[in-house]
Design a protein around this nucleic acid. Structure first.
Length: 151
DNA sequence: GCCAACGTTGGC
DNA sequence: GCCAACGTTGGC
């Protein structure tokens, strides 16, 4: 099932990297990204998260997670720019990428579901709850997408 | 709303 | 360079 998913993605090759990005829906929601069609993923002020942003390439795939009240993965997005300097930063050395939605997940995958899944016990969502931009292995990415398929 | 986790800052 | 204080994030 996850394989079938990947076949319909616009960019599907082995060099694609996978990440999870978080946002509180009150601050910036998946729905807003769908409406806007594209956004600049700015405001990251954590070095580890920034370094992940800097490693991103065009075509990399992002799971979009709602933190705070929702606590679920709700969408699939992709990186559509190289990393570049965050124009909202008044001091310091921060980076952004531009992001576009690919599609909403059929069923949102809750943090509860993710925590109950043994194969996902090492994900940043479980182990690094405060890290807002984190890499996923292909297996983790595929597993979360598989959990989003209605049975 | 609380608080644990944890990253950052600044005094020494 | 250590570490206490502080601020922020995000789960509960």
């Amino acid at each position: 099932m996850a394989l079938k998913e990947r076949q319909v993605l616009p960019v599907a090759n082995v060099s694609v990297q996978h990440y999870v990005v978080k946002s509180e829906p009150e601050a910036f929601s998946w729905g807003k990204l769908l409406r806007d069609g594209r956004t600049r993923w700015d405001g990251v002020r954590n070095y580890e998260a920034r370094n992940h942003l800097r490693q991103m390439r065009k075509g990399d795939l992002l799971l979009f997670y709602h933190s705070g009240t929702a606590r679920e993965v709700v969408g699939l997005a992709r990186v559509v720019s190289k990393p570049y300097a965050d124009p909202t930063a008044t001091e310091g050395d921060w980076s952004v990428v531009d992001v576009e939605p690919v599609r909403s997940l059929s069923v949102a995958v809750s943090l509860t579901t993710i925590k109950a899944e043994p194969s996902l016990s090492n994900t940043a969502l479980v182990r690094r709850p405060r890290l807002s931009v984190a890499p996923l292995t292909l297996a983790e990415f595929d597993r979360i997408l598989a959990l989003s398929q209605p049975s």
